[in-house]
C-alpha cells in the first residue's frame, strides 16, 4: 500500500487500492515505466542499485490507479501491481 506524503495529501484524497512493487536490483533504469505512468507515481531514484543504474521507485506524493502501464512496458518484468 502506498503511503501518502502528509505534506502533499489533501484531506479529500482517498487511499489508493493499488500498490506497485519494484524489484529494485533487476531494474535497468530504462525509464519506460516512469514515462507511461499516468499519475507520475513512478520516478527514477537519486541513488544507484547493484547494477549501477538509477532505478524506478515509488513517488509517494501521487497514487497508483492500477492501470498496469508500467507493468506492460517494463522489459525486465520487475514491476508488479497488488490490488488491495
Amino acid at each position: 500500500m502506498a503511503k501518502t506524503n502528509p505534506l502533499n495529501s489533501s484531506p479529500k484524497q482517498k487511499q489508493s487500492r493499488h500498490s506497485v512493487t519494484i524489484k529494485k536490483d533487476k531494474c535497468k533504469g530504462c525509464k519506460l515505466c516512469v514515462i507511461y505512468c499516468p499519475t507520475k507515481h513512478l520516478r527514477l531514484s537519486d541513488t544507484l542499485n547493484k547494477r549501477g543504474v538509477h532505478y524506478a521507485e515509488i513517488n509517494e506524493t501521487t497514487q497508483c490507479v492500477g492501470c498496469g502501464r508500467c507493468y506492460l512496458m517494463c522489459p525486465d518484468c520487475c514491476i508488479e501491481i497488488i490490488e488491495e
Binding site: 533487476k26 535497468k28 533504469g29 530504462c30 517494463c74 522489459p75 525486465d76 518484468c77
Partner: peptide, 13 residues
C-alpha cells in the same frame, strides 16, 4: 533471472 538484454530492449517485453 535477470536478462542479458540492454536497458529498454524490446525482447524483455
Amino acid at each position: 533471472v535477470d536478462t542479458h538484454y540492454c536497458s529498454g530492449c524490446g525482447h524483455g517485453i
